[in-house]
Computed example of a mutant assay.
Amino acid sequence: MTEPLRISYSPCPNDTFVFHAWSHGLLPGAPPVDVTFADIDVTNGQAERGEGDILKVSYAVLPYVLDAYALLPCGGALGRGCGPLVLTRGEAGPADLAGRTIAVPAVRSTAYLLFRLWAAAEVPGGVGEVRVLPFHEIMPAVRDGRVDAGLVIHEARFTYRNYGLHRVADMGEFWEDTTGHPIPLGAIIAKRSLGEERLRAVTDAVRASVRHAWADPAASADHVLAHAQEMDPDVAKQHIALYVNEFTADLGDTGHAAVRELLTRAADEGLVPAVPHGTW
């Protein structure tokens, strides 16, 4: 019997929705998988250590792992109007973040990379301490005054007002306004050592799982909510609608151009290593 492929992704609704069919054996002929749920900071670290066969990671970590992993053209999160937000407890402007403590979901996250590009232009002198917290702990930390600001992702776009927080800036608006590209957030990568044939099988399985989810969204509903950390069902639906889109089925030329722009711009600023052309 074929050993299951080790796959790690977050318990967020977009990931559990996308991978439900594959992880539940609903795709005839797809390779079996052994699923681990993990926050993005954990999966980024797994990728850097070469742990796991298939991982959902931040696009920002690609320059550090592309020697061992290939970027798959499907399954990830890339889109418009879905960027990370910078939040504070009271009303504030970008200049008010100078020297302040900000919580982020991961130092190698795309959210933080976008924030660094934005802050270089908008925060005089830069922020102070950067503290990594699991994304679901960031808004409570800002609300309770344990940090001065928070960089949030995922469903926080829909719920931050429930915490009495204020939006300072939208990293997605910054990115789209300055580049015209959609926002690359989360990527699906697979080990190159699997070989071309198995990588094709993995890609086919991811695409089939996405299409299965779209064709029968009710099939995954209980699974999604079971892992959504007490998220309201309507918020979960909004989350899926925003992050699971045409780029999830196929990055295409537009998606790949957005990723190239992000990594090239970040490398030009000295924030990540340069990625040689054709590495993907």
Rank of each mutant, 00 (worst) to 15 (best):
A106V: 00
V259P: 06
H181F: 12
F247V: 06
N14P: 14
V206H: 10
L85A: 14
E155H: 15
A70P: 12
D177E: 08
G255N: 02
P276G: 12
N14H: 09
R198N: 02
A47C: 08
P84Q: 05
P4R: 01
P182I: 03
I189L: 04
H212C: 14
G195Q: 03
N245V: 06
A228K: 06
W280G: 04
E122T: 13
E230V: 05
I138M: 02
R265E: 11
P11S: 11
P276L: 14
L5W: 09
I54R: 06
P233Y: 13
T2A: 14
S109N: 01
A111P: 01
H136E: 09
E197D: 12
V132Q: 13
E48I: 08
G125A: 14
A70I: 09
E261W: 09
A119N: 07
W175A: 01
A103F: 03
T179R: 09
P276Y: 14
A95L: 04
L26P: 11
E155P: 06
W280P: 12
G145Q: 10
L66Q: 14
V202L: 11
A119Y: 07
P11Y: 06
H277M: 04
V127I: 10
P140W: 08
L87H: 07
T110D: 05
V224K: 03
H277Y: 10
D232S: 13
W118F: 05
G90Q: 07
M171V: 06
V152M: 13
T110H: 05
G125F: 15
T178Y: 02
A95Y: 02
Y59S: 05
E122V: 10
A106Y: 01
R89D: 02
Y64P: 12
D250A: 14
V206A: 09
P134T: 05
K56R: 14
P32A: 00
D148N: 02
Y243C: 07
C12M: 15
G150P: 00
R167V: 11
P140A: 08
P273H: 05
L114W: 06
G99V: 07
D222Q: 08
K237D: 07
H239M: 15
V202H: 08
A121G: 11
P94F: 03
P273Q: 07
L78G: 02
L199T: 04
S193F: 08
A141R: 03
P73S: 15
S58D: 06
A266T: 07
P4K: 01
L117R: 12
Q46M: 15
A257H: 01
D232N: 13
G180L: 13
V86P: 14
L113I: 04
H239G: 12
A149P: 03
L27R: 12
A221K: 07
V206W: 13
I102W: 00
R49F: 10
G29T: 07
V275L: 08
I153K: 00
A38F: 01
D232T: 06
F174A: 13
A169R: 10
A226P: 01
D53W: 04
R6L: 09
A60V: 03
V244I: 10
Y112W: 05
R100Q: 00
R161Y: 09
T16C: 10
P273R: 00
G79Q: 08
A241H: 10
G278T: 13
D234Y: 12
